[in-house]
Design a protein around this nucleic acid. Structure first.
Lengths: 245, 245
DNA sequence: TATGGTTGTCTATATCAATAGACATTTAAA
DNA sequence: TTTAAATGTCTATTGATATAGACAACCATA
């Protein structure tokens, strides 16, 4: 058992939030699978070396997230512990990749615009800066639960109207197919992690301090010509990436 | 420019720490490369919608980390902004992968033991649970700066004494070579993110609330037989992963 | 129905976090 | 040398965080 008093004080992160993060991670790791319950508040307080009220603040935050539910007289039940697997291969597709692990997959178009490529977008899409590109802001849900939100750019001349097609099909793969691109491959993926900002906190229904896995990805057609550059922000406690070489 | 008042209040994460995280990310992203300095405290206070003292707390924390240095009368200078790139391919090697981006690479052996494979280790190494394995706890540094710490398991019969060889060579690749395995390939990598626990906070010299990128990886010999399973914990603000397909 | 174990609620107190304002000190440039 | 702009320091006040203790309410079970 881990436990002990591994908490840090006076660091700008409240003890109750550190404890909430620990318990959330422990639930994800299956530490309490035997009982399906979190240990009693007094036990946790002893384990973390804090007052019971501090533990209660942590559990209240997890209850707010829908991860646990406290029942007076019985204990604190675990409501949810899943983590979706997202394979990254040459044939990475979001909907197909996650699809088998959820009953319902959706991709919502939050916003779109035609604009000029800045230096970063131009470099990834191998265009001249200033070339017209279409930007989509999308939100992906698995079983009505937000998984990631993404900003995606396409060359405007080749994929005119992709916003409307995406809104209809809710899938990049299907949108490409309708616009005359039957197949494409993942060329490059860059993965980083960061704290969620307020925009992502609200769209992904996260709590402040939550972690994002950020994937910058570039897809090409079968001739190696870039067709899509995207920055996807995943709720780190809901997904993992797998790379098979 | 981003900015605005995207900060969250009453969430258990102090404003000064949220601001410190933002500024650290902005520095990493190269937002202040033109001047090599962070904007003046009064500007930042306006941008984040907080009191100047709050910004000063954030900058003090970054100074403590050695990322910035305040000079009275001039401004706050950026001392360090690197983010190492770690390519994940079939031929992923830590030292060679990071090596070109740092002057000095080291791999320290913190601890080692021979033990029985638990269910997780046995599954990844394709052994029967209970088979003897060697576990190494290692810390990797780039230019004396901690990058990641890792727990690594090897089949004990095939790689007896790898702890001593690793301590000498400070490299898995070299240790394998000395033990009669001239080449190996990366078979699978799983990437997740989580908050750092107190152990990793101290070994990686992080601040509480810091993010880890966690890579579970399995390497095989050229016949596809697993030779190594490792769980590496990277300081997320110091590295990014790249997957080329 | 009685009991032990659990969560829920209340009061009180001390410390940290954040705001507000004023002014000193240092640097670079006019 | 003056000035503007920047960081450094101090006091004071308010709200959030954490501790402490006591007791109520509820559940499962002996």
């Amino acid at each position: 058992m881990a436990g002990l008093n591994q908490l840090q004080r006076q660091t700008g992160v409240a003890l109750w939030r550190q404890i909430a993060d620990r318990i959330r991670d422990a639930i994800s790791a299956g530490a309490y699978d035997e009982t399906g319950m979190v240990p009693p508040e007094t036990n946790l307080a002893l384990q973390f070396g804090v007052n019971r009220h501090t533990v209660r603040s942590a559990l209240a935050a997890l209850a707010q997230e829908g991860i646990v539910r406290a029942v007076q007289g019985r204990g604190t039940l675990i409501e949810r512990k899943e983590r979706l697997n997202f394979p990254i291969t040459r044939r990475t597709r979001f909907t197909a990749g996650i699809g088998a692990q959820a009953r319902e997959m959706r991709g919502l178009l939050l916003d779109h615009a035609e604009e000029r490529a800045d230096a970063d977008v131009a470099r990834w899409l191998r265009l001249r800066p200033g070339t017209a590109v279409i930007r989509l802001e999308t939100l992906r849900l698995a079983d009505k639960r937000p998984v990631s939100c993404a900003t995606t750019w396409f060359p405007a001349d080749r994929f005119a109207g992709i916003d409307e097609v995406y809104r209809k099909t809710e899938s990049i793969t299907k949108a490409f197919a309708e616009l005359g691109l039957p197949d494409y491959v993942r060329a490059t993926t860059e993965i980083t992690a960061a704290h969620a900002d307020s925009h992502d906190i609200s769209t992904l229904e996260l709590t402040p301090g939550a972690i994002l896995l950020i994937a910058k990805a570039m897809n090409t057609d079968l001739d190696g010509v870039p067709v899509q550059y995207s920055i996807s922000r995943f709720a780190a406690d809901r997904v993992q990436f797998t790379i098979e070489n």
